[in-house]
Design a protein around this nucleic acid. Structure first.
Lengths: 230, 230
DNA sequence: TCACCAGCCATGGTATGCCATATCGCTCAC
DNA sequence: GTGAGCGATATGGCATACCATGGCTGGTGA
């Protein structure tokens, strides 16, 4: 099964080491492409070839093909008529659509999380938000924002929902990078009132408030991003 | 590229025949598995092997592997620890979760459809509903119900949303078949008041009414299905 | 008779090779 | 000079082959 165990570092014995890398090449390629997309390394609209990627990774075509298929199935990549794959160029209409979907899904997760969130999760969210407001670098702010949101969503204990939300984040991922950088670069570290409302709502156990704060947070960000689209 | 053109039937010349089967084996397997799942032909909890399916289809392992990967990516199939795939056994908790997701997504699509639906679509929905109420066979009723709902959702002009809804239907597909049969077999053809409310709401342009009718329709059905779970 | 071990078989992952197609460029004819 | 046709190359899909792993089974020894 080629579990790709321990490419280096000789076996350290029965010690509890946690280096379970990635199981299959397929998975590795998949996650690497995900990372590249979320980090803005891939230009929207650009196409990629199986052979090209396989050569870059130094592996055969099969794992790459499977990883691409998986991303196409998630609507993160797009199948061209010639069966090549491309990172879709997101127009304003599609962005609006995905934003509405995100409001519905993330609102549901947020609402549900209120009843089940624990103090540790709230603390992590508050720490992430504080780091953003303290003026993290743009890339880091994105990661912190992601942690803020997904800590909340994970508290919903709805794994299928969380997975669907992750997919939607991937779909708009190419947009997040550049515009957010533009938005945050010039601005002084600004407070994120909606994030603070989320935390306040969690503490108060007010599901409607948390849902609305998430909605407002998404829509606020969407306004900035949409402004860069047309 | 192996476009698999015209396995039989000699070229009929420039006549406009519409027999563009399926493009790739991958796709063919994918859709066949989808059909099998939605029709209840695959037992929830049962596992399947790549080689077994490939032998059944009379093709090689690669297209089967890709189709399975795609279904796993859509959370329709499930990856076992030994990397085999299985049709998940849906427990009550997961069913409740998916139902809530469906209410959120399908409610959004329904609401959005109100502003854009045309008379032809409403007519198709009414016809489908009438056929159900007239006492269609169980399997046919499922297909008609599906047509009713997706005609509505397609009117939303939100293709990404519709695709996500289709995925959720696939995820609960194994449950729909048997229970619905049980529910509908004994019962005399009953009217579907929520479907009628949907149509009335569409005619009246009342988005809130349509959304609520869809919510009620889904939750009504969910009660029947959940009753068969534990 | 039971437990344990070894070898086989089933199965998944990956690499390679071949075929079909699409695309691009070049050449030749008009 | 331009357009049409042809060929080379790039590219995707599929089949086959090989390897690694995990589970199962049968045999052997206590």
């Amino acid at each position: 099964m080629t579990t790709r165990q321990t490419p280096d570092e000789p076996a350290t014995g029965p010690f509890p080491v946690q280096r379970l890398q990635r199981a299959t090449l397929n998975d590795e390629v998949y996650h690497e492409l995900r990372r590249a997309i979320m980090s803005g390394a891939i230009e929207p609209g650009s196409t990629m070839t199986i052979r090209g990627l396989a050569a870059s990774f130094g592996i055969s075509l099969m794992p790459v093909r499977q990883a691409l298929n998986r991303l196409v199935a998630e609507h993160v990549l797009m199948l061209l008529p010639n069966r090549s794959v491309a990172l879709p160029r997101i127009d304003a209409g599609r962005f609006r659509e995905i934003t509405r979907i995100r409001v519905a899904l993330e609102g549901l997760a947020a609402e549900e999380a209120v009843a089940q969130v624990d103090a540790a999760a709230i603390a992590r969210m508050e720490a992430a938000n504080a780091a953003i407001e303290a003026g993290a670098a743009p890339g880091e702010a994105l990661a912190l924002n992601r942690e803020f949101h997904f800590t909340l969503y994970a508290a919903s204990a709805m794994p299928t929902l969380v997975a669907m939300i992750e997919t939607t984040w991937l779909q708009v991922g190419p947009l997040l990078h550049v515009p957010i950088r533009k938005v945050m670069d010039g601005a002084t570290p600004r407070s994120l009132p909606e994030h603070r409302r989320v935390i306040a709502g969690l503490r108060a156990g007010d599901a409607a408030l948390v849902r609305d704060a998430i909605r407002a947070d998404l829509e606020d960000a969407a306004v900035d991003i949409a402004a860069t689209l047309d």
